[in-house]
Design a protein around this nucleic acid. Structure first.
Lengths: 259, 259
DNA sequence: ATGTCTTTGTGAACGCGTGCACAAAGATGG
DNA sequence: CCATCTTTGTGCACGCGTTCACAAAGACAT
């Protein structure tokens, strides 16, 4: 039963903290928006607000990358965009395969944020022979039999699993065997992978359940004194953002409905 | 600077740590599977393996709920399923609205995991008048104008945002004003919400970037060739390639669904 | 240059989460 | 009823992540 482990217990090196890595994409997005508005520099305070984090945290995060700021001024937007992109490995091309082209797989294939940052959909794969050849997001779906060949030919190292739960582990095993070392799992299952393979999971059901927990707590709190529940209607005191002509950060869009 | 808060800073909840709450759905899933196989009891070791966590962690997690196990035997599956369900608030009905019926929204609407655990799609909402009335997953799409009415009439407290980034904040504001206090955000934007409203975000782009970071580090372990790309602005400062770090997913996971 | 003002970078304290290791609790068998 | 074996529940220590608070660094004005 040497199936390997699912999670890695600790961070054994003195690299960038995992928590920081997880926030870098957030900073990058905010910086990209500033860049498009031709803002030259930004302070930790401003950028932190845009990214929704604490400014001290942001400065500490950046300190792990090096000293890229100028005291009394702030950070050079363009320069920082480059540094973070490089740190995240976005200056290179990352071919990705998506396995399981159902509703979700199709949505992912159409996701604009893919190409925008060095990620390229190398192939769409599905087990249904009927899907073969059928184009989704302009890319013809290929049958599972081609999986190994595709991964090896294109040097794919990142795989996205969007299959039903029952097929996930099997697909995962094939991906790993073929050379994939990073997996983004949308199937509601715990994947078993050997050492050295990264797995990140995205699970709608779990997120909803966590929200339900807090929701229940909020509701059950009214028993004790006043409190907490937000008034049903209009209670917003905070407002912000640009009126209506909100120039979208364009960069990424979740899902669209093109071809 | 109204820096929107995404998560609660401290958990003054019922004493159950946030990290534990995030794992309860995982245990519940594993337990449900056991239940369907009519397994009467399970040890912390077995259940932990099924959920992909450490057995000590699992026991500690359960200890926050109470002493539901029997020493020398293990946990009663059915009983535990009930206790966790109740703790998560899944014994009641949670009407949910999905705003933005593009590819992703449609995928979410079709997601089977919804109904399975107390969540019910109360309505599908889209800004495109052309979508109105069109059935998706057996539910007719309604126009944004109906948003407030739907939320109030059905007592919806959980909203899912699957719109393009540009519309997310606006939709969020309307949801909150109408009474929604928990939001699951799929749009790649930082949402600004008033105190008391929970927001969880699911961001494909961020997940991929985190994977890319680890992938790059794995690859760069021996060959550290800078692609030769030069920083945009002439800003030349010293920069040092970070050695290595680690691959550690986990911690706080976003989410989504299968196909 | 010198002084003032702004903002970064970080040392240090604190709190949360994790995992170890073991005593307590109960089952099981003689 | 006692001995032994299994498995839980948890005290404790450790490490990561967050936050505070401030000295250092540089911009800018005089």
């Amino acid at each position: 039963m040497a199936t390997g482990r699912t999670h890695r217990p600790a961070t054994r090196s003195r690299g960038i903290p995992e928590a920081t890595v997880a926030r870098l994409p957030l900073y990058l997005r905010a910086l990209t928006a500033l860049s498009e508005r031709s803002v030259p520099t930004v302070s930790s305070e401003e950028l932190a607000a845009a990214a929704g984090v604490n400014s001290a945290k942001l400065r500490k995060d950046f300190s792990y990358l090096g000293s890229y700021g100028t005291r009394g001024v702030g950070y050079d937007v363009e320069y920082l965009v480059y540094q973070i992109s490089r740190e995240l490995g976005l200056t290179q091309d990352w071919p990705v395969v998506i396995v399981g082209i159902g509703n979700l797989g199709a949505a992912l294939a159409n996701y604009g944020g893919f190409a925008s940052r060095g990620f390229r959909v190398a192939a769409l794969i599905d087990a249904d022979p009927g899907m073969a050849g059928k184009p989704v997001a302009g890319i013809p779906v290929q049958h599972t039999d081609e999986l190994e060949k595709i991964i090896q030919d294109d040097g794919v190292s990142i795989g996205v699993i969007a299959t039903p739960a029952g097929a996930a582990q099997q697909v995962c095993d094939r991906l790993v065997a073929a050379g994939v070392t990073s997996i983004l799992n949308f199937a509601p299952t715990v994947l078993n992978v050997p050492e050295g393979v990264d797995v990140r999971k995205v699970d709608l059901s779990i997120e909803l359940q966590i929200l339900a927990f807090h929701e229940q707590r909020k509701a059950g709190e009214e028993a004790a004194g006043d409190a907490g529940v937000v008034p049903p209607v209009a209670a917003r005191k905070q407002q912000h953002a640009t009126g209506s002509a909100d120039q979208g950060p364009d960069g990424d869009v979740p899902a669209v409905m093109p071809a």
